[in-house]
Design a protein around this nucleic acid. Structure first.
Lengths: 286, 286
DNA sequence: GGACCGGGTTCCGGTGGACGGAACGAAACT
DNA sequence: AGTTTCGTTCCGTCCACCGGAACCCGGTCC
């Protein structure tokens, strides 16, 4: 049986239905469909709208929503249904994001302060990166990514990190089609493969207008207690001369700092390279 | 009929048992039980352990977990089951937390920088506050609260805010028992009621060693676009002479700033009172 | 006014799938 | 070797999910 997700499943459609084939238990599949019907900008969704989005019978949606409300996974007011706080609480318990986030946050804040650009940390899920945290100054502007958003592996600096340190994954992705999001996105498996070798050798990945026109980013790996890759951190900024070269050492150092913080169970991490020190965050820069 | 848990059995080794009610759909209830069986520190839970915590039949848990894994709500490795990234993604979409958090974050960062103490923002759920965000300097230390943690209304400054602006809620809580978490927690309905009137009049709530010995906090309300209370922000710090008086104006101003930010659809908010300005966060303090 | 429409809710009979006891394979102790 | 614990599969019973139909309520159009 394939444990690989069948398909991203087209979330938050405006009109489309999920013709997804369900290998699930019938009932949890209905729960999944209902919850997945909510998009990032929905604040109140009517029952009828949910019926449309899920493709389920009206009665079924009605009953399922009632059950979910009794649990707190769904809430309701005059505007319609919305996702409930219980889901937020559950989401905060998810180990993959929690562990990385807790260890990375102080260092990300320093990185933000030092670079004044948008910083991320992300984990791998399937064939995509999922952004776990995102900090930015107000004027850094035009967010390329939501906080729990997803992005392609081959078109982001963060994604290249995962590819470079996970040969099996790289094999899979390289054998598939590399969709071009923007003109400069790398679509050649050969070019990408060579670049991944460099990334692995140099300990840092870069991307120049390959994700979004006018922006570049630099990413570094974060390793867990057993030396396995658990995530990546990155800085994204508008393109400027020599900016990548300036960012590379900072991001590399920050990545190492997070790795150390993970080992020492969060808490006080001493910047091994010196550029980024983990004492009292921005105090040292004042 | 009575399949509603003959006996929930013991849950959570260290934590309390689910005080669960619910005449849910049978299956949704099982999903709920399984997911709720994970605690804040669990990283890998075995099937047998889940059986123990949920009180469900082994086969049922096995099947339910398989369904949840196919969805991504659960993951698994050699260590056992853990909550999956899909739940994190869902949780980030929850409107109540997302809207407040996005508007409050920049102001919370300024508040953190200005006070160098732990700052929170929180929303109301049932008869408890739920912390939506928490920022702190490293040395502020000893976190009194997790990021999605819950706390009593009558024993926290944040909670007093919700009570002071929600008469119906105050009536309910005041008519019930006021559990004393620490010696100074207010347990007298009369004392609390008078205090809530002052809170409402002054636009700010305080708490002095009523939540945790050695700590005080100050909280201010945040109002949504229709003038309804949507959340609160607060600062928590170790007790010091005159600290409360210093914090009060800052927290009040920050609360107003978040309210304004909510109205103007996040983005650029101009501190109406002047103390807290929302330009480029810490730049102005450098 | 009446007809119509689109949302939300309740009712109820048929049936598909959830349920869980039992048995099996595989490790980890003793 | 025996014993315990964990994970998995199988299968007959039966019940709770399913969804069509009908109903209620507010709008809107003619």
């Amino acid at each position: 049986m394939s444990l690989v997700a069948p398909l991203p499943a087209a979330v938050h459609p405006d009109q489309t239905v999920h013709p997804d084939q369900t290998v699930n238990g019938a009932v949890v599949d209905k729960v999944r469909r209902v919850l997945s019907a909510f998009g990032p900008d929905d604040v109140g969704v009517s029952l009828a709208e949910l019926v449309r989005r899920t493709g389920l019978a009206k009665t079924t949606v009605h009953r399922t929503c009632a059950d979910l409300m009794a649990w707190g996974a769904l809430e309701r007011d005059t505007a319609g249904y919305r996702l409930g706080l219980k889901l937020f609480e559950l989401g905060q318990l998810v180990p993959r994001q929690r562990i990385l986030r807790e260890a990375a946050l102080p260092i990300l804040e320093q990185l933000l302060f030092a670079t004044q650009e948008t910083v991320h940390c992300a984990v791998l899920d399937g064939h995509e990166v999922v952004y776990v945290e995102r900090l930015s100054t107000r004027h850094a502007g035009s967010a390329p990514s939501r906080i729990a958003g997803r992005a392609d592996l081959h078109a982001t600096a963060t994604g290249k990190v995962f590819l470079a340190w996970t040969p099996a994954l790289a094999r899979e992705v390289l054998s598939g089609p590399l969709r071009a999001r923007v003109p400069r996105t790398i679509t050649s498996p050969l070019v990408l493969r060579r670049q991944l070798e460099r990334v692995h050798a140099e300990g840092v990945a870069t991307e120049y207008e390959e994700t979004r026109v006018g922006y570049l980013s630099v990413a570094a790996p974060v390793f867990g207690s057993h030396g396995i890759l658990v995530g990546a951190i990155s800085v994204t900024a508008g393109v400027r001369r020599g900016l990548t070269d300036r960012l590379v050492p900072q991001v590399k150092a920050a990545g190492r700092a997070v790795t150390v913080a993970l080992r020492t169970g969060d808490g006080r991490q001493i910047g091994e390279a010196g550029e980024v020190r983990g004492a009292s965050l921005r105090m040292s820069y004042a």
